[in-house]
């Protein structure tokens, strides 16, 4: 094996041993009982933590997340349209599945940040009132419980029928 190949192998090995990343993935816990790895798994979690295109990781996503019905529950919204628009004016729409999950692969579309997003389903549209600066995983910022650094999970409407900010 040439020195170049050895160097490449070493770099690949070291990049696969990121303790911070490994710790963050470990903190997510295991798969839910009865749910196989796939489009329906891990709703609400920061998808891009694993779907990052790193060597040995699953398919890379550019944007992915989960839409729930209300802030107070974790009922998924099936068939919601997630409309993404980036700073260059490019846009992409994705649909949520039965788990409320949606995902955009890097091959389908990669936004130039900042990006804005709105979610529509059943005649209700909720637009995010802030910019997304660089995080393609909704669950990277929309962490439960809601608090001073998080609005909580992504939801379509408030209990009173209004839309969340």
């Amino acid at each position: 094996m040439s020195h170049a190949w050895k160097a490449c192998a070493l770099v690949a090995l070291l990049s696969a041993c990121d303790p911070v990343h490994a710790s963050a993935v470990s903190a997510l816990g295991g798969e839910a009982p009865g749910v196989r790895t796939g489009p329906l798994h891990r709703p609400g979690q920061p998808c891009l933590l694993c779907h990052d295109g790193a060597l040995g990781d699953p398919q890379a996503f550019s944007v992915a997340g989960t839409v729930f019905q209300h802030p107070e529950d974790r009922v998924p919204v099936d068939g919601a349209t997630v409309s993404l628009t980036d700073v260059s004016g490019g846009s992409y729409s994705a649909r949520t599945n039965a788990a409320g999950n949606f995902y955009v692969t890097t091959g389908q579309w990669s936004p130039r940040y900042p990006m804005i997003v709105k979610v529509s389903a059943g005649g209700t549209t909720a637009a995010m009132n802030t910019l997304i600066g660089e995080q393609g995983a909704c669950g990277g910022c929309h962490v439960d419980p809601a608090g001073s650094s998080s609005p909580g999970h992504v939801s379509l409407e408030l209990a009173d029928g209004g839309t969340p900010p």
Binding site: P114, T130, L131, G133, C141, S149, S150
Partner: peptide, 10 residues
């Protein structure tokens, strides 16, 4: 607003 989102400088 422009820089302080929680995924950046927030």
């Amino acid at each position: 607003f422009r820089c302080g989102t929680v995924d950046c400088h927030g």
